[in-house]
Structure formats: structure tokens, C-alpha cells
């Protein structure tokens, strides 16, 4: 290959890409007019470009931009975090602050709420089951209570004496087997 052909072969791709200045392109064009192998090479390069067909890309779904902007401003760090970009996250209006993982933040909030609800529930159940303080207080004097009990006992004994067949008070103190033998 001649020097001029070698030089041309290096320039042809850039020439076809429209990246050569006129100063570079003019001598190349002259060379291509005269050199069949280099012309073939240029045609090959053109042929290869036909493989690069720009397919119609899928359109962004409706509302895509609004959704992304909303997520960005909500502090969404995304899923596919990249180490370079995860180093200095940015939150609007707050400068460079450390960005929490939104999932972790949500789980923590949920746990805190659940704990608060459980605590309130436990308190409510405990309060409901316990007797009121008024119920626990002594409403009468001890002596009055004893006197009342003695009156009740006396009344029971008197009633037992009046009803035939009903064991008397002293018989109540005996064991059941002895009463049976009598």
C-alpha cells in the first residue's frame, strides 16, 4: 500500500462522518478519484453504515417527566444506585445533606407507629381490667363490719333452731362421717 493510500484509509471514516476540514478533505477527494482500492474502501465503509439503522425507540410513557420530577423532589434516591453519585446526594432546598434510604425510612416510621399503637392498646386494656380505686377503699369502720357479721350469725343460728331437721350450730362443727354414724 502506498503512503498516500495508507493515509487515505485512515481519513476515510472521518471524511464520511463529515469530520474533516476542507483542507483535509480536498486532497482526499482527489486521491479517491484516482485510486480504485481506496474508493472500494470508502464504499465498504458506506455499506457498513447501512447496518446502523436507528430503530424507533420506545416513546417515554405519558406522564414520565412529571413522575420522575416528583420522585426526584421527594428525595427518591432510585434503585440502581451508583457509587459515584451516591456519595454526594442533593436534596432541593437543603443543600448537600445525607439522603436516607426511603424504604428504610418508611419501615422505621411504620415500626414507630405500630409500637405507639401497641403501647396505647396495652394501657387501655390494663386500665379497663383493674378495679377502680374507689372499689378498693374501706367504706365502713372495722368495728361496724364485725358487729354486722355477728348479727348475721346470730340470725342464722336462730333460724336454724326453728327449722326441724336442720343441723344445729354445734353439730355443724362435727365431721360429716360422725354425723352419719349417729
Amino acid at each position: 500500500m502506498q503512503d498516500s493510500c495508507q493515509k487515505s484509509s485512515m481519513l476515510i471514516p472521518s471524511y464520511l462522518d463529515g469530520e474533516l476540514s476542507e483542507e483535509q478533505a480536498a486532497p482526499l477527494r482527489r486521491h479517491l478519484m484516482e485510486c480504485q482500492p481506496c474508493r472500494d474502501l470508502a464504499q465498504d465503509e458506506q455499506a457498513m453504515k447501512r447496518w446502523f439503522i436507528a430503530e424507533e425507540a420506545p416513546a417515554a410513557p405519558p406522564g414520565f417527566a412529571a413522575r420522575v420530577a416528583r420522585r426526584a423532589f421527594a428525595g427518591d434516591a432510585g434503585v440502581l444506585t451508583d457509587s459515584e453519585f451516591a456519595l454526594q446526594p442533593h436534596v432541593a432546598g437543603s443543600g448537600n445533606t445525607e439522603q436516607e434510604d426511603p424504604t428504610l425510612r418508611f419501615v422505621l416510621q411504620l415500626t414507630a407507629i405500630a409500637a405507639a399503637v401497641l403501647f396505647c392498646l396495652a394501657l387501655a386494656i390494663r386500665t379497663h381490667d383493674l378495679p377502680e380505686s374507689a372499689d378498693l377503699g374501706a367504706s365502713e369502720d372495722y368495728s361496724q363490719v364485725v358487729e354486722k357479721l355477728m348479727r348475721m350469725n346470730a340470725a342464722e343460728e336462730a333460724a336454724a333452731d326453728e327449722i326441724p331437721g336442720l343441723p344445729r350450730k354445734d353439730a355443724d362443727d362435727e365431721p360429716m362421717n360422725r354425723k352419719t354414724r349417729k
Partner: peptide, 27 residues
């Protein structure tokens, strides 16, 4: 589209890139 032909993946990647861009907008 030149890196993946899966429409869902394309959308995910573009969205991810834009979230990154927003996070680093000040830089």
C-alpha cells in the same frame, strides 16, 4: 435502546439516570 431492547429496562435506566442527575445537579 442501544444497550437493552427491553422497554421496562429502558424506562428504569432513564429514570435512574435522571434521579442521579437531579441529586448531583448542584455539582
Amino acid at each position: 435502546r442501544q444497550y437493552t431492547r427491553n422497554p421496562v429496562e429502558i424506562e428504569d435506566i432513564v429514570q435512574e439516570a435522571l434521579l442521579k442527575v437531579y441529586r448531583r445537579l448542584d455539582s
